[in-house]
């Protein structure tokens, strides 16, 4: 079986900095994969390359059997890749419900509304549906971003630090939600610095350093890997 998402020698340089350096990673259908690495190792840049916010300097992105390299973000989104951002980007002056109307989905208004309420209930946001999004807590904003992306019924969701700035009470909820979304068949690639979240969530972890994949394996495997320790301790 070929992978759902694969990068092939993906490279991005910013002036003199090589942010992503001949990266080959893959995510299979329905897989829940962690992407970790020290600060500045190129994780967010990888997401930006996959979702079309940056044009790669070299290499290719393959998704669901097609070459999606260089496509615009909205085109990538139409093909089934959803994404949240490292810094939450809720539409703050809109209500939570209005936020849910922004995804470009092909349903009529009635079906759309039903789906919105279903997702808001699932992600525990139904009671704040009429609140302005900028009045939500950090964790609720992350949940809203997740709910919004799920409106598109993506095949793959890329999450950039979904647990950052979330209070511990909401953390368990977010972890449970991500697991549930994955159990229904959506593949997920999650970037996270909190190792307890990664060990809780991920079947497999990809470790990046200096724009390359250092290794990949289960959490137990990578935890005992000398190269991983070096990447984090050696200061790249």
């Amino acid at each position: 079986m070929s992978a759902l998402l694969a990068t092939d020698g993906l490279t991005k340089t910013f002036g003199g900095i090589v942010a992503v350096d001949g990266l080959d990673i893959a995510v299979d259908e329905s897989e829940l994969v962690g992407l970790i690495g020290p600060n500045g190792s190129g994780k967010t840049t990888t997401l930006n390359l996959v979702t079309g916010f940056h044009a790669p300097t070299g290499g290719a992105v393959l998704f669901d059997g097609d070459d999606v390299t260089g496509m615009k973000p909205y085109q990538v989104s139409k093909r089934g890749i959803g994404r949240t951002f490292q810094i939450s980007k809720p539409f703050g002056r809109m209500t939570v419900f209005e936020n849910m109307l922004v995804p470009n989905v092909p349903y009529g208004p009635k079906e759309r509304e039903e789906r919105i309420w279903k997702l808001l209930e699932e992600l525990h946001l139904d009671h704040v549906a009429e609140h302005r999004a900028d009045a939500l807590s950090g964790g609720q904003k992350k949940l809203l971003e997740l709910a919004r992306v799920l409106m598109l019924e993506p095949k793959l969701v890329l999450l950039d630090e979904p647990a950052a700035g979330v209070n511990p009470a909401l953390m368990d909820e977010i972890i449970a939600d991500i697991k549930q979304i994955n159990e229904r068949g959506t593949a997920i690639l999650v970037i996270e610095h909190d190792m307890s979240v990664i060990s809780e969530l991920c079947e497999r972890v990809i470790v990046m350093n200096a724009g390359r994949q250092v290794t990949t394996g289960t959490f137990e495997e990578i935890r005992n890997d000398e190269r991983v320790r070096e990447a984090y301790l050696g200061g790249a």
Partner: peptide, 24 residues
């Protein structure tokens, strides 16, 4: 209508609006 909704979304975050499938 939808046009205005997406316009407001673009004003707040054109990246997020785009990632939600809108031809910004």
């Amino acid at each position: 209508n939808r046009f205005g909704l997406v316009a407001r979304a673009i004003r707040e975050s054109s990246d997020a609006a785009q990632m939600l499938g809108n031809n910004v």
